[in-house]
Simulated scan of single mutants.
Amino acid sequence: MEIGFKFEKLIIWQKAMDFGEDIDALAKIFPTNELYNLSSQIKRAADSIALNISEGAIGQTNPEFKKFMGYSIRSLAEVVTCLHKASKRKYISEIEFNEQYENAFNLMNMMVAFKKKIQ
């Protein structure tokens, strides 16, 4: 008997988990005056992506899952905005911005496609 939750098998959940850890590591280089502002915001938004996927997958209906996928997509858009803020404030390099922006773009495309497939 295989034990596990169905959301753990979802590639988008796995990628969202990895993305959240990457963003957490990136936020650690932000200045200390951003600890309760941008650092906290970007980390919470990044974590919210995987959290909402898992919460929606446990739901009893597909419309409910679609709703939570929408929350995940919005959280990812929030992370992208925080990345822009961090870049404009010179907290991260252009290379770091581009790497995480590309990761976010790819994850967004996967999530939008997945949401469309939910009946």
Score class of each variant (00 low, 15 high):
N62C: 02
S75D: 08
S54R: 04
F105S: 09
R74A: 11
Q60F: 13
I92Q: 02
R44C: 09
R44Y: 08
L51Y: 12
I49W: 02
K67N: 15
K115P: 06
S39D: 05
Q41H: 15
I73E: 03
A77D: 15
N109D: 07
H84I: 12
K88R: 12
K66W: 02
N62R: 11
G59L: 08
P63T: 11
R89D: 03
Q100E: 09
H84G: 03
I53A: 06
E94H: 15
Q100R: 15
M69A: 11
E102V: 10
I42G: 00
E96V: 06
A86Q: 03
K115I: 07
F114K: 07
N52E: 10
N103H: 11
A104V: 02
I95T: 14
N106S: 01
N106T: 12
R89F: 08
L107V: 12
K115W: 04
E55Q: 10
S87T: 12
F105Q: 09
P63W: 04
A50M: 09
K85S: 06
L107C: 09
E96T: 14
S72H: 09
Y71N: 10
K88N: 15
K85M: 08
I58D: 04
S54A: 13
K116A: 09
K43G: 00
M110K: 12
E96G: 03
L51P: 00
K66M: 07
I58P: 00
L107H: 07
S48G: 11
S87M: 10
K115A: 09
A46H: 06
E102Q: 15
K85C: 06
L107A: 07
K115E: 13
N52P: 09
S48A: 14
S39A: 15
I73C: 02
L76D: 08
L83Q: 03
V112P: 02
M69C: 15
K66F: 01
G56Y: 00
K115V: 05
L107M: 11
G59K: 15
N103T: 07
S75Y: 07
Q100W: 02
R74G: 12
T81V: 11
T81L: 05
S48V: 04
M110F: 07
K88V: 13
A104G: 14
F105G: 01
F105Y: 12
S48F: 00
S40F: 02
S72A: 15
K115F: 03
C82P: 01
I49P: 01
S54Y: 01
K115R: 13
F105R: 12
S39V: 05
T61Q: 06
N98W: 01
H84L: 10
N106A: 00
K43V: 13
P63E: 07
